[in-house]
Amino acid sequence: MHPAFSVIFLTTLIGVGQGLFLALYTAESYHAVGLLPAQSPQFYAWGAWVAVAFLVAGLVASFFHLGHPERAWRSAARWRTSWLSREVIALPVTMGLMFVYGAVHYLGWDLARFGIETGLPGDLTLLVGALGVIATFGLFLCTGMIYASIRFLQEWASPLTVLNYTLLGIVSGFTFATLFAALFATDLVNFFGGWAIIAILAALVTRVSSLLRNARIRYKSSPQTAIGVRHSRISQRSQGFMGGSFNTREFFHGASRLWFRSVKWLFLMLVFPVPVVLISLGMSSDSPIELAAAFMVQYLGLLAERWFFFAQANHPQNLYYQTVG
C-alpha cells in the first residue's frame, strides 16, 4: 500500500493523546488508592487538554486524506458495518470525555455537587476518567480494526494489528507523560518513566511478532486465481494503459528495497532501544532535555513504523498491475 502521510499523522498523533490520557488516569487511580502523592488539579487538567490537542491535531491531519472533507459528517452513518465509521464516532466521544475530565479536575467538582455523597475525594474525575478510558480503548480498537478487518490485506488481518496500535499508542503517550511530569510534576517522572519502559518492552514483543508473522505469510491470491487460469507460469504483458492510474499509485509504496528495509531497522531502533536509554537517563537526572529527546526520537520512529506498516501490506489487486506493457 502507498503510505499516506495524513493517515500516518492521524494514527500516531491520536496514539500519543490516547496514551497520555491513559497515563494521567493511571496516576490518578494510583493516587486514589494511596500509592502516589496528590497532584495539583491543574496538572491533570492541562495534561488532559494536551491529550485532546493531540487528538485534534490527528483529526486535522485526517481531513487531508479525504477528497471531500466538507462531507465528513456523513461518515458517521454506517457504524453498524464499518470500523472507519465507528472510529469517526469514537474519536469525538473520546475527545469530549478527555476534555470533560480535564474540566472537572480544573473546576474541582465531585459527585457531591450533584447530590451524590460517596465520601471519596475526586469521585467525579475518577468516574469521568473511567468512561474516558473505555472510550480510549474503544478508539484504539476501531483504529486497529480499520486495518485488521480487511481480510485480503494479509499483513494486517491479524489481532496483532490492534494490539500494536494500542501498545504503540500507550508507549508514545507514557513517554510524553514522562516529559510532561518532568516539567510539571517531578515526583511522577519515575512512575511514568517506569511504565513507559515496560510498555516499550511489551510493544517490542508484539511488533516483532507481527514482523515475524508477516515474514512468513503465504499469499492466498496468485496470478492463477487472479485470472482463473491453471498454469504455473503466468506473466503479465500489459496492464492495459501506458501511464499511471489510481491503482498504480494507491497500492504500491514505490520505494526501493533498500529504503524499505532501512525503514524497518530505523523504526526498530528509534521506537524501542533508543527511547529506553534516553528515558532511563532522564529519570536518573530528572532532566526534561533527555525526556524531550526520547519523545521526539520515538515519535519519529513511530512515523517510520507507520510508514512501514502501510508499505509492507501487499494488496492482491497488485497482481493485475505488474507490467505497464
Binding site: 486524506h65 477528497g67 465528513a72 485480503f152
Partner: peptide, 11 residues
Amino acid sequence: IGCKYCSWACP
C-alpha cells in the same frame, strides 16, 4: 467523501 477505504476493500 473520497476516503478510498472501499478501494482498499476490493481485492
